[in-house]
Amino acid sequence: MVKRKLVPYLLALPGWSWLALFFVAPIAGMLALSLTTGDVITGFRQTFHVANYVDAIATYWEQISRSLLYGGSATVVCLLLGFPMAYWIAFRGGKHKSTYLLLILLPFFVSFVLRTISWKFTLSDNGVVLGTLKSIGLAPDDLAVLNSAPAVVLGLAYNFLPFMVLPIYAVLERMDPRLVEAAYDLYATRTQAFLRVILPIALPGVFAGGLMTFIPTSADYVNASVLGGTHNTMVGNIIRTEYLVNNAYPTAAAITFTLMGLLLLGIFSYARALGTERVMEVQAR
C-alpha cells in the first residue's frame, strides 16, 4: 500500500527535478548574483549590495517603463486583431477550422529573428509597402516607419499574435453557440449579445492571451534592436548589453529581477481586475 501511494510522487519526480535544476537553482543563483559586487577580472563577492537595484532602476527607468508601454500596446493590438480572428474561426470556420489555425501558426515555422528581419524589409523606406505607396503618390516621399515606436509595437504584435488568438479561440470554441441565439431570442441586439454574453464568457481566454502576449513582448529585445533603431531600446536590450557586452552581471541580474517583480505585480493586479468571479458578475450587469 505504501508503495502504491508513492507512485504518483515517483512519477512527478523527473518533472520536479527538472524544475529544481533548471528553474529554481538558476533563479536563486541569479538573485544571489544581483546582490554581489566586483567585476569579471577580480571576481564577484557576495556583499548583499541592495544599491545594485537602486542604481539599475535609476539608470534604466526609461527603458523599463518603455518596455512595459510597448508590451502593453502590443498586447492591445494583438487583442484587437486576435479576438475577431478567434471569433471568426470558432463560429464561422466550419470544417476548415484546423486549416485556419495552422495558417495562424505557420509563421512560427520560420525563425523568430528571420521573421522580424523580413518585417524590416517589408517596412523599409523604399520597401514593398512604403515604396509602392510613395510611387503612386499616396504617401509623402520622406515617410519612414522603421526605427520608430510604432514599428517596434507592430513587430511585437505580429510576432506574438498567435499567443492571443489561440487561448481566445479555445474558449470560444467550447462555448455553446445557442447562448448567442438565446441572447438574440431575449431581445439583445448584436452589440448587446457581444458585450453581455460573448465577451464575458471569453474573458478567461482574453486573460490568458493577455498574459501570454504581455510577458514575452515586454521582455523582448529582438524587435527593438531590429525595428526600433537607437532611440527605442527596451529593457531586454539593456539586459543583453549589460550581460554580454559590459559583463556587468550584478546589474543585469538586478534589472532582470526588477522586470520580473514589475511583471508579477502587473499580473496580480490584472488577475484581480479580470480573473475573479465577482468582477465577471459586475461585467454582466
Binding site: R178, L179, E181, A182, D185, L186, R196, I201, E281, Q283
Partner: peptide, 14 residues
Amino acid sequence: NMVFQSYALFPHMS
C-alpha cells in the same frame, strides 16, 4: 421566446 434543449443559460450570470 425559446427554451433550448441545452437550456443555454448564461453561465456567468446568476
